[in-house]
Design a protein around this nucleic acid. Structure first.
Lengths: 215, 215
DNA sequence: GTCTATAAACAGATAGAC
DNA sequence: GTCTATCTGTTTATAGAC
């Protein structure tokens, strides 16, 4: 078992990719090591060899996600000099990017499913990893944009919760997608569906950021 | 194995209650029948006897939830005669009820966890059950209230998605609770926490329903 | 209806050949 | 590093006594 902090290659990487997909699809407990090994086109013994066991493979998946994803979700390089209008635009861009990432990006689908599942079934330590590496920095960034756009305090309770409620809508449209598609009578998530969802969330965002700070 | 459509008693009911809790806590695959039987204070053979197997017990849990929950989540008896203001009030009451149900109701916690988990890991048939019995009727009701409050068409794409985004915020505050509590530095979900979340969602709701129909 | 004992399949981990 | 074969424990399901 090699260092957890550096990227993998070859068989180890194939195992992580396969595990990420299968853990996301069926859950950790429901996925067998035999299945993972077969999907990675190797043998079960290699899981113990590289990761010490099934549990170690899960941790490696978490580490992999925590390392790769922040780079793919850059908001902006420097917020401090933005005008309120620019901050609002930046917020809307983030919303658009996140929605299309969550709903359409093929390559990211495995990662998204994996993360969402971890959110529900993960242990405290796994959640700590996701929170510190992924969630907290991103949320804090959005709070700063929100503050510039609205003139509020970036770390006020109101701002933090408002950002959560915006993120929440996006995440829900992914988690509740089976319910949404049935209710909307969509058979696929095409451009129009994504655009309709985006329009709804952006409209809510605008309505929320236009609120007076005193309200 | 008896009829799935009628309520259970005695051992069968104890098994359903235990399974509901354990499936919700750990997931279907990670929960063993031994564990369920022990929690229900009976033997593993009784699961096969009453439900035909572990899978049958899951279906019985779904049926149980689908039968019990709609009764506990009544919105209003008759919407048709409400004024826009009354409809708005009814919407806000639903939001308050749902948030306190999702975040604080002790007795409902097992059911909530079970449903949220099913939403992610369930098979198509399980999702169909949840959708038809639980989700669709409730969503349709809320769309009617939304329509009265805003003057929009209750079945327009815009209305249906707006209702989804409101529900989404509530559901997310439950699913993402581990992240929310960390970010908000809450150690428990007390009255103040629930009130802060409620205020955020209600403020978003008001901002959304005040939108012009043409927008 | 309830329960014990057990069968048959499967899990994750590992020893050891190459 | 890779792989097969196997060990050991656990799983669900079931047979059969009461």
């Amino acid at each position: 078992m090699t260092d957890v902090s550096e990227p993998r290659t070859g068989t180890a990487q194939a195992l992580i990719a396969a595990a990420l997909r299968l853990f996301g699809e069926k859950g950790f407990a429901a996925t067998s090591t035999r299945e993972i090994a077969a999907a990675a086109d190797t043998n079960i013994a290699s899981i113990a060899y590289y990761f010490g066991g099934k549990e170690g493979l899960l941790e490696a998946c978490l580490a992999d996600v925590a390392r790769q994803l922040p780079a793919a979700a850059v908001v902006a390089s420097d917020h401090s000099r933005l005008s309120p209008g620019e901050a609002q635009s930046a917020l809307e861009t983030v919303v658009r990017t996140l929605i299309s990432f969550f709903l359409t990006t093929r390559e990211a689908q495995d990662v998204v499913r994996f993360i969402l599942r971890q959110l529900i079934e993960a242990s405290d330590t796994a959640i700590d990893t996701l929170y510190e590496k992924l969630f907290e920095p991103k949320h804090r960034e959005l709070c700063q944009l929100w503050a510039i756009a609205t003139g509020q305090d970036p770390e006020s309770e109101q701002t933090r919760l408002a950002v959560f409620s915006t993120i929440g809508q996006i995440i829900y449209f992914r988690i509740g997608l089976p319910m949404v598609t049935r209710r909307m009578a969509w058979d696929t998530i095409d451009r129009n569906a994504v655009e309709a969802i985006t329009a709804t969330v952006i409209a809510n965002l605008r309505a929320a950021t236009n609120r007076k700070p005193s309200e």
